[in-house]
Write a protein that binds this DNA or RNA. Structure first.
Lengths: 159, 159
DNA sequence: ATGGGTGCAAATTGTTTGCAACTTA
DNA sequence: TAAGTTGCAAACAATTTGCACCCAT
């Protein structure tokens, strides 16, 4: 993990990671998988399969919906992408490599997402895992509530 | 909130809370809603709409699938139930009243769920919200990894 | 060349909804 | 009795899958 930080961020690193992962499982790095990987790391922030597909279409990239749905779990499995929220029916993802781990404050009124990070919080989670003899790999923390502007303008509205 | 702790836990309290919530919104406490509420507080642990419906059927309770799906959001809205995980397609819930807030360590190998709680962690979350001027209402923390027994026996198996 | 991968369209499946009849406040 | 609620079945929408052809390794 450490050495990576010494280099200038290189956009082909995630491709190498993905390729390694695939070959270790006897799978292939096809053009479609590459296009999907590129798009995921080009866009910053969260995305859902639908939106990703749309972005791919808006460029040249001809990738089918099925391939998007088949590739996302692979990206999650090899740790390049995380599933961050599943509100209603939509699964939402974000890429994690070169992005840094963080948690989310989600406004239930306007949907805004604020990214936060606290080393102390990470440390306490390690403690919790240790106490339960649990080998924690990843975690998701989502705090739902009201962001500043919704708090200000909608205080007394119903719901 | 305080007075409740002074009494021995009384199974009708959640009913009162639900009734109050409903009447405040001009809704009614129907037999179906009561049966659903009872079942949710009878079962301990997590559940999904499907499983809840099955349990209801296994007793006398004639409640339709539609009513289950229509009632669960109400229970969430009034704070008696929380949505805790959404893995694959299934939404999972648990009741919170008389149960105490806690977070989850989820084993990705065997699916076991360990409940944990840390006041320090809660406090740090409050800090995070304050820094972002965010009014946090609820939160969900899920740490995924390997529980002790899966760690022991499956260390080198693929995936 | 061979085994995995793709696109398409059809199938699945969890969840939502329209509606006529029924209950609760 | 007025307004919300139910059950049913049909509608939806996100995701998955079968299959014939295609392409990395």
């Amino acid at each position: 993990m450490k050495p990576l930080r010494l280099f200038h961020y290189n956009s082909s690193m995630e491709k190498e990671i993905f390729r390694d992962f695939l070959s270790r499982k006897g799978l292939k790095l096809t053009k479609e998988r590459q296009k999907i990987l590129d798009e995921v790391f080009t866009l910053h922030g969260h995305f859902d399969p639908e939106g990703l597909l749309e972005r791919l279409r808006r460029r040249e990239a001809k990738v089918s919906k099925a391939s998007v749905y088949r590739t996302l779990p692979l990206l999650v499995q090899c740790g390049l992408v995380e599933q961050v929220e599943r509100d209603g029916k939509h699964a939402r993802y974000e890429h994690t490599f070169g992005h840094g781990h963080h948690d989310h404050l989600i406004c239930v009124k306007c949907g805004r997402v604020i990214e936060v990070f606290s080393p102390k919080l990470e440390a306490i989670q390690d403690d919790l895992c240790r106490e339960s003899k649990f080998n924690g790999i990843t975690h998701t923390l989502e705090i739902k509530g009201y962001c500043q502007s919704c708090e200000r303008c909608c205080l007394s509205s119903p719901q």
